[in-house]
Design a protein around this nucleic acid. Structure first.
Lengths: 141, 141
DNA sequence: AAGGTGTTACGAAATGCTTCGTAGTTGCAA
DNA sequence: TTGCAACTACGAAGCATTTCGTAACACCTT
């Protein structure tokens, strides 16, 4: 056994993760400034600090406390975290059907031709992978 | 002005809505039974009752209390509710990019050829609508 | 050396969600 | 008619999240 994986981040924690994913490692001060910009209102400094401390305990961030102003960085990857959240969301809101979710996301929303093209490319890639069971990765079998 | 729109349902409320959307109007007893099946464990009867009462106040359900056993039914539509939840989720988890969400949903997940075909059809429909700015609905301009 | 500024740590209040126990009521059956 | 079983209403506890105030500490400037 090893440590438990980091739990699903809350809304506030996710907002902080977005800042860290985008800007890289940062001090509480810098994170708090980004957060205050991102929202309408000013965010209390100690509020941001507190959330970061809780995130540290949960393993969502790491910190470098060599300097007086500690530097925090994300301990979870953006794609993995989004995938985790997406799984839960698909279950809770769409009864587990990712297809329904995709249809809803594409259907009730303005989607540009460029984006549609990207999705088509992805669809092609998926179909190729489905038909040719990737000979490269299967060599370990 | 009129009444405020129903708020975003919580996880438990959403679970109850799924039951109502699927089975139609039902008594607390029936809803509670469905919930107990859906989950591993037994759900307390008064727990379900309480949540339904809160949902009634929030306008998420309506009830017919003509009989002694009140009959509840969903007051919000499945698609609309899912759309609302999806909007919030896209903002919170994917920084507002529905494209990223779709890519993630399709990329990190097993998708059948049949489902891919459905998505392709939808993509075609969207492109047609994008290129021909619906002459029917624009007659009011 | 002293004071001010910025930082961390911590406690705690406010809120929302979920759960359940209890009380009161209603209808039906014996 | 009496009593049991099912139902509704309500209060409250437990928990997580978010927010902030306060205390303690460190560094820098004067």
């Amino acid at each position: 056994m090893s440590k438990a994986p980091p739990p699903k981040p809350t809304d506030s924690e996710l907002e902080i993760l977005h800042v860290l994913w985008q800007h890289g490692p940062a001090t509480v001060r810098a994170i708090n400034d980004s957060l205050s910009q991102r929202r309408q209102a000013e965010v209390g400094y100690t509020t941001t600090l507190k959330i970061l401390q809780l995130m540290l305990e949960k393993g969502l961030v790491r910190r470098d406390d060599a300097d007086r102003s500690h530097v925090y960085r994300a301990a979870v990857r953006e794609q993995e975290t989004q995938g985790l959240l997406l799984d839960k969301f698909v279950d809770a809101a769409f009864g587990g059907s990712a297809l329904k979710l995709v249809m809803q996301a594409l259907g009730s929303r303005q989607t540009s031709a460029d984006e549609l093209a990207q999705i088509r490319r992805l669809l092609n890639d998926i179909e190729i992978q489905n038909s040719t069971p990737n000979p490269d990765e299967d060599e370990r079998a």
